[in-house]
């Protein structure tokens, strides 16, 4: 993670970092994802998870959910740097708004025979995963849950014959009645 942006920052002390989930509304125009990913890489910020999909087809607006970790100062910079990108309409920090709902979906393929196979099915049941495909020596499970649940599930599947994992990354939303477009804006942020 980057320190201060200044070349003159000589202190080695590191302030605490925190994980934030940002929801970003953008014009779904060519290159917009490259612009956002490029801003993160170019300025040395990290992306833990990024999901994107058009949410309002008529208006060509996409919602991007980004999970990133940084000091308070870095997170503020990330938000203002996102907000100044021309196709970005709105940046909302779901972590600041309170405990946001976060879910991701994973597909997991396991292969095995005998006890391992039975155990895999039992664990999937315990996690509430759905079985999407089964052969005599394999399963494909689907699990939706928090990142922690998904991680735990994948770790356990590792013991019973994990072959392949595919994850969607995080979809997130604040709790309560208020929509993200109604959230209060910081000074200078573009409510568009």
């Amino acid at each position: 993670m980057t320190q201060s942006q200044s070349a003159y920052f000589l202190s080695d002390a590191q302030p605490p970092t925190r994980r934030h989930t940002l929801a970003v509304l953008v014009d779904n125009e060519p290159g917009v994802l490259a612009r956002i990913a490029g801003m993160f890489s170019g300025r040395g910020y990290n992306i833990e998870s990024l999901t994107v999909s058009e949410t309002e087809h008529e208006k060509h607006v996409s919602r991007i959910t980004i999970v990133t970790t940084g000091t308070e100062k870095t997170i503020e910079q990330i938000k203002t740097q996102l907000d100044r990108l021309v196709p970005v309409h709105r940046v909302v920090d779901l972590t600041v708004q309170g405990e946001a709902l976060e879910r991701e979906l994973c597909l997991v393929k396991v292969r095995g025979k005998g006890d391992a196979r039975v155990e895999a099915l039992r664990l999937a049941g315990a996690f509430g995963a759905r079985t999407l495909d089964a052969t005599l020596n394999s399963f494909v499970f689907e699990l939706t849950g928090t990142t922690e649940e998904v991680e735990r599930f994948i770790r356990l599947m590792g013991v019973v014959g994990l072959v392949e994992v595919s994850r969607t990354g995080i979809a997130a939303m604040s709790r309560g009645a208020e929509g993200m477009l109604e959230a209060a804006l910081p000074d200078g942020a573009q409510g568009r």
Partner: peptide
Amino acid sequence: DRITGRIDAFSPGSKKIHIDIDPSSINKN
């Protein structure tokens, strides 16, 4: 950084006001 030099020794005793059209300039360095 041509202005601030060492950030931790930059104008240590002052309050600072910053007027800028770009919100990302504020509190950046």
